[in-house]
Design a protein around this nucleic acid. Structure first.
Lengths: 131, 131
DNA sequence: CCGCATCCTAGAAGATACTG
DNA sequence: CAGTATCTTCTAGGATGCGG
């Protein structure tokens, strides 16, 4: 486990807010949806190298429950489900923007000695606008 | 030894930034230090109901290593160590401010059905000024 | 008082197989 | 394609005891 997911009693607001994004992939999911606006399950999966269907589905469910993402199911023959950020999710993402900037710096430093994906270099890691 | 907290490859800046505060008590520690400015080990411990010395010490070390907190050791007969936020830590805390507001709302909702400490009510959960 | 070391547990995350 | 169920692995976090 990477983070420390829990729904326990919170000590403060930050604690509670952080809990909403506690999960190895939630930050990345937020980033993906923010960057692309709308994303299908398979697309998200491809965007998160290493994630398993189980974890992706679970995190998506939790984030939906937390009102961060919107899940739109299209009743078609080839199943199609699209995910996007809710207003709430966007607000959270915006709040996370500054963190992204700091994180990007961290990536460059830590990346040198611990390895880091370079996908982040492709876009503005702080919070890319969706074109 | 304790294997270094998985600073694995990050997918994006947000991911990297979130990793710095991943740990059950880091958010609360940040909040405590922000609220009080300077805090001794024992004080922090009392401020974080339920935390163990091990976890408090470990998280503090990690946060120090990440440049979030400053650790000042006073070579006195009764050992005294004081912790405070570094400029970096304050920046992070500020970025977390908006999250705190959202988290506070969450606490009120979730709190009703999951229980929540009321210490948050005592101060501005979003980011109390230390006056 | 501060905080490290050791052992142990809960549950998060991973791999895989299967269903609609 | 989307998502669930099951089994395994991994490790953050908790409990306790010792040392400076």
């Amino acid at each position: 486990m990477v983070r420390a997911p829990r729904r326990g009693p919170y000590v403060c607001g930050i604690d509670a807010a952080l809990d909403v994004v506690s999960g190895k992939w939630k930050g990345a999911i937020l980033w993906e949806l923010h960057a692309h606006g709308v994303r299908r399950f398979a697309e998200l999966r491809r965007g998160l190298p290493g994630v398993s269907e189980k974890m992706l589905a679970r995190h998506l469910r939790e984030m939906e429950k937390d009102g961060l993402v919107c899940r739109e199911v299209h009743a078609e023959v080839p199943p199609r489900v699209e995910y996007s950020l809710t207003g709430h999710g966007r607000t959270l993402d915006q709040a996370l923007g500054p963190l992204g900037v700091r994180g990007a710096e961290r990536m460059r430093r830590e990346g040198s000695e611990e390895g880091v994906v370079d996908v982040a270099e492709a876009v503005d890691v702080a919070g890319p606008s969706r074109g």
